[in-house]
Structure formats: structure tokens, C-alpha cells
Design a binder for these strands. Structure first.
Lengths: 241, 241
DNA sequence: AAATTTTTGTGCGAATTGGTACAAAAATTT
DNA sequence: AAATTTTTGTACCAATTCGCACAAAAATTT
């Protein structure tokens, strides 16, 4: 079996990558992937000349800047330093590579949020925690380039959603994950007495989503991190202050 | 002077179209455009076989669905029924046509909002007016196709902004116009006693922007008009109720 | 009716696109 | 060392891309 990224062939139109992330599956589909993750012993054939995670990071940056459709394989080859057939063998076609890059992005943010978004009633106040959350998002929205790139999901995935079933599903999963995460957070906050029972956690979560969306949009339109922090602060104060 | 859409050649990287809309200039650049708008007498050459506004509307629909980059001129020719050189002569290149289509979209919404977004203290309550605003937006976000297309600006213009100066500027203008409009609305509401002086109109306007963004995103991800109305209602109640 | 002006429509062409065939290379296994 | 397995790199292909040249068509003006 050579040059057959079977993973993408099978799961193409399912919410693979979301599940893959949850299950911790590798996001490379070459033949070396399985054995490499199963055991530390080096696999059989010629070793891969690139670091898959680094490639995904670099690919993400191109997609983030130019969008999915306007990013050519030549762009990706140039940015990653990996030539075309290797990209193909390792990650599947352009769409699969995009999905994996976006999962990379999603997971990176997800891990950051894990360290911050936790309310057990003993740590900082709700507004402090939410403020920290916004700082993280503002950081990713403005810190990728000299020109702020905004939210990768809203700025690139939304555009493709109607034409690419798999991207639409990833988008839906991401929104759902976001909602659930914040709903749980606010429920916890209520049980630990950090938030009055008057508030509806679901609605608050959607509110956070709206503010986040606002920040992501304004960043892409050129707003600086300082401007965004000001906006986020105003919003947070209005909601909880 | 034949087949020279001079308008686009000159103003390419300025915020033409935004100004053009404000000034009421025509969004066709063929040679018949000027005289046709100046006087009702028919211009000199062969008459145009298409209705410019209808073409923009049809072009918008394609851009809205597929995004700017993934929309080919063949798509546009097929959707509008106007062949390639005529599109070119009438509207300029693909980017110019996209900009004009988006201005069409923006103006259409703007006119709808004019009829609703007015607070003189004698009509309906603030929540009623805001509710009507959201109904309009939800209508445009879900009413263009069997599958909801979301917000055309967020879903397509955001994607292109870093690569196309003119699209970025249009985006900035649109955001600015939105903010100003709602800030004024809330200031009026305060002067007429419909809104307590505690609220900051600027922050409230950004809040509305956030909620709107949220709706636009969720629509593109497949949310129905009913779901969106529920969300908008919850948000509105949290802010003003 | 001839001249002029503008739009239309066919058809093309240079460039770019995504994807792949195939042999060489680099590792492990026997 | 020979065989096997996997990745790499060159080169290429068919399809599509955007934009335009040029003549025919349809109107007004002289």
C-alpha cells in the first residue's frame, strides 16, 4: 500500500477529525503513522523528513491568511518545505490537509482554555477568569502575523461551509463544543456560588460566543489587541459587573 | 473608449464603492451608465441587454454561496445570463463585481434597517424595535436558499480581507457604519427616555454587533430561523429585559 | 441611408490549478 | 548483502482559471 491516505478515503464526509482529536489519533495518514504511534521503535521504510505537527502549523498559517480556496498547493509546498506528493501521502488532499490544520488550531486553543476556564469557587472571580479567556483569544487573533488574522474558523471555514460537507461538520462540532464548554463553566460557577442563579448558563454561553465572534471579526478588519481588550472589557463588565 | 471600466481602474484600492453608495453613483461602469443616470433619454449605442441591479443580485447569490475565490467567471456567467466580456465591460473584473454585489447587499439591508431602527420615544419599546431588527437580519441570513447562507460579509469578505485591500476597506467601512448606526440609535433612545443613562451606547452597539455576528455564524452552520430567533430573544432579554 | 457609438458573443490563449506516475533514495528486515 | 518497505523528488497531465481580441449586432446621430 503506497501513497494511499486511507484515512481520508474512508471518513471523508464524517466528523472524523473532531473524533480523531478527542480519541488522540494521529493526524498523519502515511504508513509510518500507525506504528510510530504504537511503539517508539522506528518504522520500516524511509523515515519521514518533516515533523507533521510543524507542517500542520505552517499549513494553517497559509490557510489562515489566504483562505482555503485561494491557497494553492504550491503555496503549501513553499510554506511547509514538503513537496507535493509527500504532502499528499502524508495528509491526503487539500481539503484533508485543511481539516487537519484546523484541528491543530482547535486543539491548541482547547488546551489553552483548559488551563484557564475552570471555576471551583476558590480561585479568582468570574470576571477575572472570563477576562483571561478573552486575553487568550485576542492573543491568537492578533499574534500570528504583523497584520491580525482574526478567528481562523470564522474567517476561513465559514466561507467554505456550503460547498464542503466535511468543513461544515467541523464547524458545527466546533460551535457545539464551544457552547457546551461555556455552559458547563457557568453551571459550575453557579454551583460554587460565583454566579447568581438568575443567569441562564446557556444564554450566557451564547453571549460569550457572540462577543468572541465580534473580536474575531474586528481583528481580521485590523483592530489591534489593545482595542480588542477594551471591547472585551466593556462587554464583560456589562454582563457580570 | 470601448470595454474600459475606467471606474475600477481609477478607484481600485480606495473605498470607492462605499462612497459611491453614499453619493448615489451608479454601480455600472459601461459608457451608457453616465448618460443613463443623467437623463432619461436613451444613450447612443446598442442598449444593454441586462438589468444591472438584477445581475448584481444574482452575482451576489453565487458569491454568497461559494465565496469570492471559489466563484469562477463561468459561474457568474451562468448565474447572471450575461456573458463574460459584457460582465467585464459593465462591472470591471471579478473583484469589482464582487464589491458591487456586496454594496448591493449592504444597501438593501441598510434600507430595511432605516424603516425599523428609529426611536423617537413615541412608538414601540426598545426591546420590540431590537427584536424587529434581529428578525430582519435572521430573514436575510436564512431566507436566500433552502440552506441558510448566513451573513455575506462575515462568511465571504472576512475570508478575502488580508489578500484584497479593497475588500478589507469595504469590511472596515461596513463595521464602522454598523457601530455608528447603533450608537446613534441608543443615544436617541436615551434622550427619549427609552433607555436608562447607565447604559453606554457604544458598548451596547458592540453588544448588538456581537449578537448579530453570532447569528450570522450559526446560520451558516445550519441553524434554522426559529433557533436563531430563540437565541436573539434570549440575548435581547438579557440585555434590556 | 451612411456614419458613429456601444454592447454582444464567439473563441482563444497564457497561466495556474489539483492531483499523480515513476524512479531514486533511505531506512529496516531477512 | 539482498530483499522489502516507505518516503522523496522530478516531471507531467488534464482541467480550469481569468481576461481579452475581434467581428457582428443594435441602437442613435448626422
Amino acid at each position: 500500500m503506497v501513497h494511499q491516505p486511507y484515512e481520508t478515503l474512508i471518513h471523508k464526509s464524517e466528523a472524523v477529525d473532531a473524533d480523531a482529536m478527542v480519541l488522540g489519533l494521529p493526524d498523519v495518514c502515511g504508513d509510518q503513522a500507525l506504528e510510530a504511534s504504537a511503539c517508539c521503535k522506528r518504522p520500516r521504510g524511509r523515515p519521514r523528513a518533516y515533523d507533521p505537527d510543524l507542517v500542520l502549523k505552517k499549513a494553517l498559517h497559509v490557510f489562515w491568511q489566504k483562505g482555503f480556496a485561494a491557497t494553492s498547493l504550491d503555496d503549501l509546498v513553499e510554506a511547509t518545505g514538503v513537496n507535493r506528493p509527500s504532502l499528499y501521502a502524508g495528509f491526503g488532499d487539500k481539503e484533508a490537509l485543511y481539516l487537519k490544520s484546523m484541528q491543530h488550531y482547535r486543539q491548541r486553543i482547547s488546551e489553552q482554555l483548559d488551563t484557564v476556564l475552570c471555576c471551583n469557587g476558590q480561585g479568582d472571580s468570574l470576571t477575572t477568569i472570563v477576562g483571561r479567556y478573552f486575553d487568550i483569544m485576542i492573543g491568537t487573533y492578533t499574534g500570528q502575523s504583523e497584520h491580525p488574522l482574526g478567528c481562523a474558523f470564522m474567517c476561513t471555514a465559514l466561507n467554505e461551509a456550503p460547498q464542503h460537507e466535511s468543513i461544515l461538520e467541523m464547524l458545527q462540532n466546533t460551535i457545539e463544543e464551544f457552547d457546551v464548554r461555556f455552559e458547563r463553566f457557568f453551571i459550575d460557577a453557579q454551583t460554587y456560588g460565583c454566579l447568581s442563579a438568575q443567569h441562564d448558563p446557556k444564554v450566557l454561553a451564547q453571549m460569550i460566543g457572540g462577543i468572541t465572534a465580534n473580536l474575531g471579526v474586528r481583528a481580521r478588519a485590523g483592530a489591534s489587541a489593545d482595542e480588542l481588550r477594551l471591547i472585551a472589557g466593556n462587554m464583560t463588565r456589562m454582563l457580570f459587573g
